[in-house]
Amino acid sequence: MLRKLCCVILLMIQRDTESTHVIGGRRTVVQGEDVDLSCRLIERTQELKQITFLKSTQDEKHNLMHIYPNGVTDFVAPNGLKGRVQFIGNPSENLGSIRITSVRLLDEGTFTCIFNVFPSGTYTTEIPLTVLVPPVVNVTVDVTPVIGENEVVLATCVAAGAKPQADVKWKTGTLDSLLRTVTNSTQHANGTTTVLSHLLGVPTRAANQQQVQCVVNQSALATERSYNYNLDIHCKYILHYYFPTL
C-alpha cells in the first residue's frame, strides 16, 4: 500500500514537472529608453522558493537579482545596473519581471530567469536583450572646395556611433549626373559603427550654394532623417602685384 502511494505521489510530481515551464521572449530597445524583461512560470502547483535573474555577456555570467516569495528583492551584482533595475513582477502570480531604466549599450546581453520550486527543482528561460544606438549625424567638409577642374570632396555626411550600422545616401537633385559618392565605415570596439559618405564632384561656380541632402536610415530611428546642406565653393583668387615705375 505504501509503495503504491509513493508511486502515485511520484507520478503526480512527474506530470506536474512535465507541464511546468517558463515563458519569456527576446527584447529590443533603443539606448536611453526603458525596457521590461518579463518571464512567467506556467502550470505551477508546487511551492515557489525563489526567482533568480542572471546576466550573461560574451565575457562573463553572474547573478543579478534574487526575488523571494514575499516580494523582497536582493540585488546581487551592480554591473553598471545599480539604481536602474527594479522588480515589477508578482511571485504570487508566478510573474518574475524586471524593468531596466535608461538602458545603456553595456546592458546588452542574455538575461536568464530562473524559478526555483519545491520539490521538482528549477525552471529557466533566456531573455536576449538587444540595444540599438541611433547615429549622431553631421554634414560638413574638411577642406573648403575652390573652383577648379579636378574632382574633390564637396561634402561629407558622418553617421557616427550607430548600432547597427546606419545606411547613408545622398539626394543631389539636378546635380545628380555630375556628382558621385564614396562611402566607408569604421567599426568600434563597443560594437557601434561610424559611416562616412563623401560627395565628390568638380567644384564649379554653378554648383555653389546648391542644396543637397544627406539621407540616413537606421533601426533606432523612428523615421528616415534628411539633412540639408548647401555646397560652399569658393572662388580662386589670383594676386597680381603691381610695382609702379619710378
Rank of each mutant, 00 (worst) to 15 (best):
T28P: 11
T28S: 12
V29G: 02
V30Y: 05
E33Y: 02
V35L: 00
D36E: 10
C39Q: 03
R40S: 02
L41H: 04
I42P: 01
E43Y: 10
E43K: 12
E43Q: 12
T45D: 09
T45G: 08
Q46S: 10
E47K: 11
L48G: 06
K49G: 03
I51N: 00
I51R: 01
L54P: 08
L54W: 09
L54E: 10
K55E: 06
S56K: 04
S56Y: 08
T57I: 09
T57N: 13
D59M: 08
D59L: 09
D59S: 15
E60F: 14
E60P: 04
K61V: 05
H62V: 15
M65I: 15
M65S: 15
H66Y: 04
I67V: 15
Y68H: 10
Y68A: 12
Y68F: 15
P69V: 08
N70E: 13
N70C: 09
N70D: 10
G71N: 05
F75M: 08
F75E: 12
V76P: 06
V76K: 03
A77E: 13
P78W: 07
P78M: 07
N79K: 10
N79T: 07
G80A: 09
L81K: 03
K82I: 06
K82L: 11
K82V: 09
G83W: 04
G83Y: 05
R84Y: 02
R84Q: 04
R84T: 03
F87C: 01
I88Y: 01
I88D: 11
I88Q: 11
G89K: 06
N90I: 03
P91D: 00
S92Q: 14
S92T: 14
E93C: 02
N94F: 08
G96W: 06
S97L: 06
S97W: 04
I98W: 02
I100Q: 13
T101C: 12
V103Y: 10
V103F: 11
R104K: 11
L105C: 08
L105S: 03
L105K: 02
L106H: 14
D107M: 02
D107P: 08
G109R: 01
T110L: 05
T110C: 05
F111T: 07
F111P: 04
T112C: 00
C113V: 01
C113H: 12
I114P: 08
I114R: 14
F115L: 06
N116Y: 09
N116W: 06
N116T: 04
V117P: 00
P119G: 06
P119E: 02
S120L: 01
